[in-house]
Amino acid sequence: MTVKVEVVEGGIPHNTIMAAGLVASVIFIYLTYANVLTGTQLFSFFGGLAAVAAITWGSHTIKHLCSYGIGTGVPSAGMMAFGSGVIAMLFATKFGVASPIVAVVLAAIIGAVLGFLSNNVLNMRIPVMIQSLTEMAIIGALVLMGFAAMISGSFEFNPLTAGSVTILGLSLPSYQASFIGSSLIAVAFMLGGIAVQHPFNACLGPNWTQDRMLTLAQECGFLSMITAAVMSMVFLSFSAALVSVIVALVGWYYTYTKYIELSKRDAAAWLDAKPIPELEGH
């Protein structure tokens, strides 16, 4: 049994995860644009995959940041990420096709300012603070945009605010029955906020392992995706929502079983209905 230390050693370097997460997330969001190009809604599930990619990256950023000890709980970092990310994301939706890029840039600016405020004005003096909060804001914006694209089929402002209600068989336009008008964005906010902080919060400890935490991050992403897929049934055709549910369920099942395997590998012992073992030397 190897004893891992808290500093990231071995495994995939943080910059690789960051680059992969950013690129994968943006590409997946753009793949939902195939909805517009092909005139269907079947490609909406890519939005969920974008969220999974960003959450995986985010869990590692939080690990990076929180191993310095920020004085308050791990969840606060997730809340900060989404509090700043939601503002960047909603503003960016106004820019049509360019939205994901605008979201990344604007979130980076907001995150960098928040990082500067925490690190310098609040005098926290944590070397990775500015970089981490910049990343967190981008992650928050990308996760929200991914879920928005998945639930409503688009990442642009107008489709996100327009919906329809069916009354006695008639379909009427209604702004209330839309992703933003119904505040489903608040659900996406919390889904992402918990999913991004949970992997590190759950896996912290002296025997932290990177692959286990990243698998858990993917599991959290897919789990959130399942519920987002159920909510997407309101806005999307049944077949499109079904595709999302199936992709989410398959991904969740795979990562969940893999996570249990990895936990079994890392655990000191795996006991069922056994008493507390007697330890020597303690």
Partner: peptide
Amino acid sequence: TAIGAKPAA
């Protein structure tokens, strides 16, 4: 454990 260390702020 990991979050125990207080920042040097």
